[in-house]
Design a protein around this nucleic acid. Structure first.
Length: 350
DNA sequence: AAGACGGGGAA
DNA sequence: TTCCCAGTCTT
């Protein structure tokens, strides 16, 4: 690709961006911290989903100091419903490190930035190009889709090593004068024009430079192999209430799926009786089955499916409860961070 | 390289 | 259903 060609491509792309770009909250600031927050929230998450979370989050944590020392329970509550909760914990750890090690100045180079928790190659490039105007690549799903079509790259984007191919492509094409605009322009193009299915090529500012458009195979790109195979697990969920009307809640372990989030006790439904396991594990006695069919639903994660059968039981507490298990009033429960499938259960209780 | 890690919107 | 979303971390 010759110099003139690249120059025209860049200008068409950036000019289009300056005409058509969406007015998003994180585009009204140049504060690296706020850009950072937005980029973490946007990982595997749609813009429309992020906007209200972003606004609430920065209202609560306007500075890195305010986030660095916030209680994790409160932090997770702010993230509740957004998913991938380790993002919140990693963001806080990263921000804390910047406050303490870098005197609250977000690093402006890829080497230091990449060492921070939750900042991978994409997020580092996004912060550097958008907040610091550095000519750094920021390759996400949009960029791979757009450039696989424009340059007709047929590498399998499901393979980790393919990311490097696109990083080199961006390094070749990037507008050194407006790197932030260039990176965001490709992402906006991917979101609005160069969509996964039925791309709007007639509205595309760079269709003259797009090989796939000329070949007529935009819909075949990008190439992606991996298939998703999800396991299925059945659970009996015990919504257990005591004489005072308090409900039995459990805090999940600090690592793994939905770490540190709260839930109603759930017992994996295998061949044996869940009742005995529940009573023994939580040290309670079921006095009465109030509703054996409180709620039934599926919850689908990216890698597994939970089939939930929720029953309402009245219980009496025996001796002491295990750690991480408590009886709480409805009002108190509403202050705890809970995954969405537990919020669904909470909703049918009143 | 492959799997874990949420939740929702669109086809 | 299936795919994908402004990906990162762990093994």
């Amino acid at each position: 690709m010759n110099y003139q060609y690249k120059k025209e491509f860049r200008h068409h792309l950036v000019d289009w961006f300056n005409r058509e770009k969406r007015d998003l909250p994180w585009r009204r600031t140049s504060d690296p911290y706020k850009i950072w927050v937005s980029e973490v929230m946007l990982q595997q998450t749609r813009v429309d989903t992020v906007i209200p979370y972003y606004n609430r989050f920065l209202e609560k944590y306007p500075t890195m100091q305010s986030l660095a020392y916030a209680p994790q329970e409160e932090l997770l509550k702010m993230w509740e419903g957004l998913g991938y909760y380790s993002r919140a914990r990693n963001l806080q750890a990263g921000v804390k490190e910047v406050v303490e090690k870098y005197n609250a100045v977000v690093p402006d180079n890829r080497h230091d930035l990449s060492k921070l928790k939750g900042i991978g190659p994409y997020t580092a490039g996004a912060i550097l190009s958008i907040a610091y105007n550095k000519p750094e690549h920021a390759v996400d799903g949009n960029v791979m889709r757009v450039l696989s079509r424009v340059l007709h790259i047929e590498d399998d984007i499901a393979l980790p090593k393919t990311r490097k191919v696109f990083e080199e492509a961006v390094d070749m094409l990037i507008d050194e004068e407006h790197p932030g605009d260039f990176n965001q322009a490709i992402m906006d193009l991917g979101a609005m024009i160069c969509t996964p299915t039925s791309p709007k090529c007639l509205l595309c500012p760079v269709r003259d430079y797009c090989i796939a458009f000329h070949e007529g195979d935009t819909e075949q790109l990008p190439l992606k192999s991996k298939k998703t195979k999800t396991k299925k697990v059945k659970y009996e969920v015990y919504v257990a209430v005591d004489e005072q009307g308090n409900y039995l809640l459990e805090k999940r372990p600090s690592e793994g799926l939905l770490a540190n989030m709260w839930q109603f006790p759930m017992i994996e439904l295998t061949k044996d009786v869940a009742k005995d396991t529940f009573e023994k594990q939580y040290n309670v006695h079921i006095k009465k089955y109030v509703n054996k069919d409180l709620l039934k639903f599926k919850h689908i994660f990216s890698h597994l499916t939970w089939e939930m059968e929720c029953i309402l039981v009245q219980v009496k507490q025996l001796e002491h409860l295990p750690d991480n298990v408590h009886f709480y009033s409805i009002e108190k429960i509403k202050e705890l961070p809970m995954p969405v499938m537990m919020l669904k259960i909470l909703n049918v209780l009143n």
